[in-house]
Design a protein around this nucleic acid. Structure first.
Lengths: 105, 105
DNA sequence: TTGATATTTGGTCGAATAGCCAAATACCCC
DNA sequence: GGGGTATTTGGCTATTCGACCAAATATCAA
């Protein structure tokens, strides 16, 4: 797999609202599938597949403990980039407002 | 658009090898569509559509000068995260090798 | 205006994604 | 082993994506 293909796989894995919700939660600590399912609010099989995507991109790891499977965030720097994206989105929103306000009524 | 939907749009836009190639190049400076097309090696209409995706995610901006359109990277922190992803991919590769080597011949 | 170059847009088609349900698997407790 | 809970996997459908080609648009120069 080429350099950019490997990178793209990571970004692609992060490119879904439910998966970002999961990553945000895992940034707080390890969680089991049932907890994440309750959080996301989709079918458990859907959440399981989202977790498979994150895992195969190397963003999370899983570990079975008894009848539960726990997932852990492995790419801590994701949170840092998330902050960067948020700042950017906010500044865009501001620019957008400024643009509208610049149009005479 | 919800918080995580907006974020996801950014990640999704970055989740394609050709678009990462473009972003890497634009990190070096502004480029016209023709330069990026040569770099990516796909049909110019395909590259144009990739640029539309990046632009609508707010990652790049465009500006026409004469008959050319120039694109500029607007989300500088992408490069920082790219480094983080690369470090992660490298450490995974190392772990993978270690895992194989741990298996007796 | 005509012709040439640069870029975007519309159309089509095959591949990939995301969701749900149902079935399979894993583990625990009895 | 059998039943119950947790999770994954397979199958199906609808939607989205990505690539190309062809046509439209924009700019420039003659």
């Amino acid at each position: 797999m080429g350099m950019n293909e490997a990178r793209a796989k990571v970004f692609k894995a992060l490119g879904h609202p439910s998966r970002l919700t999961i990553v945000d939660e895992l940034a707080q600590g390890t969680r089991c599938v049932c907890e994440l399912t309750a959080l996301v609010g989709a079918d458990i099989s859907t959440v399981s597949k989202h977790l498979t995507v994150l895992k195969s991109a190397g963003i999370v790891s899983d570990e079975r403990r008894g009848s539960n499977v726990y997932y852990t965030l492995r790419m801590a720097c994701v949170s840092g980039f998330m902050d960067c994206v948020d700042r950017h989105l906010k500044s865009q929103a501001t620019a957008q407002v400024a643009h509208f306000e610049a149009v005479p009524a």
